[in-house]
Design a protein around this nucleic acid. Structure first.
Length: 583
RNA sequence: GGGAGCGUAGAACAGUCUGGAGUGUUCGUCGGCCUGUCAAGCCGAAGGUCGCGGGUUCAAAUCCCGUCGUUCCCGCCA
């Protein structure tokens, strides 16, 4: 046996007893006649002390050496108790110290208090994971997934694995592709979600399915997006919306309890998509703070300000928010205006309320007294407040202000948790005059007649879960009628023949007594990120990739041998080959 | 595909705006001292392709162009 105890177990061991522990040297302190080091294992830290004359090996220890120590548990002398340490009232008087494995000089300190460039951390992720913060994040992940499994097992769900080598469909996100060797020139795709397979499980009579599933989307990275990510995927037969929301709510509360230790008793609030957009300018509103959008269109309908006139006469809207007291300089105003432009706005109107109640603004001279007063009242403006107005088509106006609202008002941490359901999504959305689905084409419409008559107004039985302004995931009641499924494809511009070719196997499956079913999926990485108060998903993924899809440690992705390419029937283009030859 | 920030010793930074010898700080490393520290302390030392390439200049870490890496954002993410 290499060790008898873990570091933090030692508080339960009686003084004078001999124990053997093993772990890593966190810090060593050599005082000449007496020397200490802190030994860290997965459980925590304990101090080891020895006389260097008796045990000269203690002076050889360096940070992150892996060591084994045998010694006597003893009380620390009065005045030397370390309150910051769980084991701070005791120490081990070493009787034997053994270096199990020495360590090279470290590329960075294993210490939460030191900020290290993320690339360096990823290059030596195994060392990064020794930091308490990362160890805590890994543990939180494990607590989250075990809470999910425990909760769903109790509710009678079956955990089923679905394939990760599946067929590619051109809709939605770009697929990660895997070339087939046995059928050269053909490709598998890695699943973006187990969507169709879980619906097939419903047809297969499973009734209650879940899976903690790895999913892949070959799109550009963000701080909350990686190529591969983990979702809790779940589906139930004979289910309607309430069954899904109830179940997911129970699961998310269990996760919050497991990771944060908090009991969330209140039901998650619900908001319609329309209300979310109107009040917060986002379909994933952060409701931890107010700063809501206000419709000013009627107030400035007669305004002589050209931008307002133009927006309103072309069917647009004028919206405003009060972002409160802000440092507001010319350069700040310019930066915000630039930001609004990158978000698609033509510009941004800003106003600062002066102590005398007047408005300081480039557009103040275009506003009469009534309009000025109206805007101030509508936005509950106090002296010192900064008001931002956007005049544009409705969606642009609200989303621009919604983004600025988050950037100017959002709390920097995730101490408070604000879960939220967003419901009643539009079934379709128009993009460059082309109709696409807002969720996915297997989502049930609220009304078939409306879907056909006024598709632009049709709502879907889809719903999103949001936490602190981050979209955790979405779900819906599915279409279980093959005829309606075909009609949805048609409205989306996928003709019967194409639909039959791509999804014929699925449409056929729907024809064998498909139960009504509904489900959901949420991102495990994102939930854990927020519960752990992290700003990036990479902090809760053990081995993430950088923004260019590279793993700095292994170097993936890499070139492969010509023989491997031959087996797959793949030829590298001259352009790509040039990069290889240069590299 | 586009925009912005960053890149200086093993790590974190200052220096860059306003060009003048690789100038400095903290941690780590190496050597020495030290019997109660706990991010120990004190003394000493080593450690640099200022990401890379090109240009401007008498002179470039500093100014300009390109490029690579990285982060954030827009597009994208049904």
């Amino acid at each position: 046996m290499i060790r008898t105890h873990r570091a933090t177990d030692l508080t339960d061991v009686s003084v004078g007893e001999s124990v053997t522990i093993a772990g890593w040297v966190q810090r060593q302190r050599d005082h000449g006649g007496v020397a200490f080091f802190d030994l860290r294992d997965a459980s925590g830290v304990v101090q080891v002390v020895a006389d260097p004359d008796e045990y000269p090996i203690i002076t050889e220890l360096r940070m992150e050496y892996c060591v084994r120590v045998t010694g006597m548990i003893r009380e620390r002398p009065e005045g030397t108790i370390n309150e910051d340490l769980d084991t701070g009232s005791i120490e081990i008087g070493a009787t034997a110290i053994e270096i199990l494995s020495p360590a090279d000089v470290l590329p960075f300190l294993i210490d939460d208090r030191v900020d290290v460039d993320e690339r360096v951390r990823l290059q030596h992720r195994y060392l990064d994971l020794r930091r308490p913060r990362m160890a805590a994040n890994l543990k939180a992940r494990s607590l989250a997934t075990s809470a999910i499994r425990r909760t769903l097992d109790e509710l009678g769900f079956l955990e089923v694995e679905t394939p990760t080598l599946i067929n590619s469909t051109p809709e939605g996100a770009r697929d990660m592709l895997v070339p087939s060797r046995l059928r050269q020139g053909e490709f598998y795709a890695l699943p973006q979600s187990p969507q169709l397979f879980k619906q097939l499980l419903m047809i297969g009579g499973v009734e209650r399915y879940y899976q903690i599933a790895r999913c892949y989307r070959d799109e550009d990275f963000r701080s909350d997006r990686q190529l591969e990510f983990t979702q809790l995927d779940l589906e139930g037969s004979f289910w309607e919306r309430e069954d899904v929301l109830d179940t997911i709510e129970v699961v998310l509360k269990a996760v919050a309890k497991a990771v944060r230790g908090i009991d969330m008793t209140e039901p998650f609030p619900r908001i319609t998509w329309q209300e979310a957009m109107d009040r917060f300018g986002s379909d994933k509103p952060d409701i931890r703070f107010g700063m809501e959008l206000v419709d000013l269109t009627a107030l400035v309908a007669e305004s002589e300000f050209g931008v307002f006139q133009k927006a309103i006469s072309s069917g647009g809207t004028v919206r405003g928010i009060n972002v409160g007291k802000q440092e507001w300089s010319r350069s700040r105003a310019d930066a915000m205006t630039d930001r609004a432009k990158t978000l698609g706005a033509g510009g941004l109107v800003w106003m600062v309320v002066e102590p005398d109640g007047s408005l300081r603004s480039p557009v103040a001279k275009f506003l009469n007294e009534q309009e000025t007063q109206g805007i101030k009242e509508a936005l509950r403006a106090e002296p010192g407040d900064v008001l931002l107005l956007s005049a544009d088509q409705w969606k642009t106006a609200v989303t621009v202000l919604g983004a600025l609202r988050v950037e100017l008002g959002r709390p920097v941490d995730h101490e408070d948790l604000a879960f939220l359901w967003v419901v009643d999504f539009p079934l379709f959305e128009e993009e460059d005059g082309k109709i696409t689905f807002s969720h996915h084409p297997f989502t049930s419409p609220v009304s078939i007649d409306q879907m056909r008559g006024e598709p632009e107004k049709a709502l879907s039985k889809a719903y999103d879960a949001v936490l602190n302004g981050v979209e955790l995931g979405s779900g819906s009641v599915r279409i279980h009628d093959p005829e309606i499924q075909s009609q949805v494809f048609e409205i989306l511009g996928i003709d019967r023949e194409t639909a039959e070719r791509r999804f014929g196997w699925f449409l056929q499956a729907l024809r064998y007594g498909t139960p009504p079913h509904a489900g959901f999926a949420f991102g495990v990485d994102r939930v854990v990120m927020i519960l752990q108060n992290e700003q990036s998903i990479r902090e809760v993924i053990p081995f993430p990739k950088t923004q260019t899809g590279v793993d700095p440690m292994t170097g993936a992705p890499t070139w492969v041998d010509d023989q491997q390419l031959n087996d797959l029937g793949i030829v590298i283009t001259p352009e790509a080959g040039q990069r290889r030859d240069d590299g």
